[in-house]
Design a protein around this nucleic acid. Sequence first.
DNA 1: CTGAAAGCGCTTACAG
DNA 2: CTGAAAGCGCTTACAG
Lengths: 345, 345
Amino acid sequence: MKGISIKDIAQEAGVSPTTVSFVLNGKGKEKRISEQVSKRILKIAGKLKYKPNQLARGLRTGKTKTIGLIVEDIANIFFANVAKVVEDEADKFGYKVLFGSTEDNEEKAKGLLEVLRYRQVDGYIITPTLNLDKEIAALQKPVVLMDRYFPNIADSNYVVVDNFQGAYTAVSHLVEQGYKKIGIITTTSAQIQMQQRLDGFVDALQKHDLPAGKNVIKRLPFDLDRAGFIQEITQYLQQNKDLDALFFATNYLGICGIESIRSIGLHIGTDIGMVSFDDHDIFRLHSPSITCVAQPVEEIGRRLIHMLIAELEHSTEASAPQHVVLSLELRKRESSMPAVHHVNA
Amino acid sequence: MKGISIKDIAQEAGVSPTTVSFVLNGKGKEKRISEQVSKRILKIAGKLKYKPNQLARGLRTGKTKTIGLIVEDIANIFFANVAKVVEDEADKFGYKVLFGSTEDNEEKAKGLLEVLRYRQVDGYIITPTLNLDKEIAALQKPVVLMDRYFPNIADSNYVVVDNFQGAYTAVSHLVEQGYKKIGIITTTSAQIQMQQRLDGFVDALQKHDLPAGKNVIKRLPFDLDRAGFIQEITQYLQQNKDLDALFFATNYLGICGIESIRSIGLHIGTDIGMVSFDDHDIFRLHSPSITCVAQPVEEIGRRLIHMLIAELEHSTEASAPQHVVLSLELRKRESSMPAVHHVNA
DNA sequence: CTGAAAGCGCTTACAG
DNA sequence: CTGAAAGCGCTTACAG
């Protein structure tokens, strides 16, 4: 059960634990340990398969080489993909990832933060919920926000996408395809990323002199379940038969939207155009395939970890807050092609 | 930066760190600390927002309250869902989860195991790769395997599904629906779960006196990429035009299969029946929807964590190895209905 | 009823 | 060139 420690090596090598520690931490040269002793220690450590106890090291140095990753929902494909990249990249720098899902629930998020804090993680990557700003500010360790941020807090690091541009691009695309009465399905969430998507939608309509009034905007409570979303969207569609296209503010809404549209017998693309924010396997494979503005998942993950590591490795002077805003990519598919009649597989 | 410690509380309360530790660990009564002192300590701890340093505690007690979760791929929806449940359930017992993806690569898996080991995790939930048995046996801590196990190693705990039954059910369903020439698309993986799915397939055909020869079995290298799978499946279909139904041994293969079938202009369900192992959002939403045998994801996650916690909490005597084999549920959808012509949305 | 002391396994300033 | 010692923040056997 008990692992082998630095003492065991010291004993076998006939030197002190200090010397062993120096050699094993690559400070042999610097501390001018003789070649001979160094080699002997390394050999014994290898033979004994010595693995330093990270707990002891962490207690002493204050560094655990662990980062806390807080996402909205690890079972959501977007967050799962980001988590994968974060894990991979963190590994390259010798960091491990402790994760948790908030379900966008403030209390869950606060609990998570507390647990990670007293586990002494070195830094955090956080998808914040509403009203989490104070808790995050109190963290005393490097933090990088993702997916959303607090617009009124100047000094936070974040990696987000250009939600406004994404929505604007999506809606402009629908306009160019000839759709004229475009609605948005979004949530009541007051969070910045949702607000920006709505702004992008409205702005695109106005730029193209299309109606952007109240009745083309449908906000759903974000805590509905799948059936609830489908029901609400279906109802909205039935009450607004003049709509000829819809922009869905999240892929989750888009997926529910597919079911809603289908349930009332409309054909996507021909009867009603559709673009969703955020890609999903379903959108690519669906017949007809669904146009979307896709988030650069790989790059988001990479940027997050690199930004955090940079903070971690030279956190001596507080560097200026880093902001990365990535563009989304329009992926044109059949759901926004009114002219093309789709052949079913 | 420095957190507040037991010493700070001791000082403010005018008692020793020992007393503080006793009280904070709920051993006040047992150690017969006076009510008065206990209350004072608790009040001060609350005021100072004391959080025990888990590193120090772990170093002393040997317990980190952390479990290592090794999956094949956290970005795969099945594993992401299991991870979510594991995280949630672990949390209820005060455990946090450190995770990693193997990509089914032996070397990556070994690296992961090593890292988790020297981070002193209390126990492991592992989706093993091939040849990982020795490393796992050497772990010295409770382990529960998932998704697959080592048939030649008797004393391991695991939670798996009944792969044979699942495949058997899927194929029998196709037979009952009237399909007569059924093929399987699987991988060359030698792992137990894939072997059992193939066995279930063959057995079902034989029971129904249908041909189960070589040419209804297509094994693909499991390290192909998406395009490679699609190409291989397409080719196989073109060379075996007499097939009237396919059983896909994983949802990933099934998804590629949809694209392959579509690419050669066949209609799923009517031209060629289809059932996949393991559900996926795409299968539910696809037109036509895809029949599958679904894994009980929630229950898998719950069982895993409960089995591990049970080992953890009374690991004094080595209890008998626990084996849980869960059944899969046949979800009948349009892809296995030859008679019903599907109306496209 | 309470406390001094040892020890978990490291790292590092200090001394020689 | 090398080592003794302190200390990170806890827990717990032991003593009184």
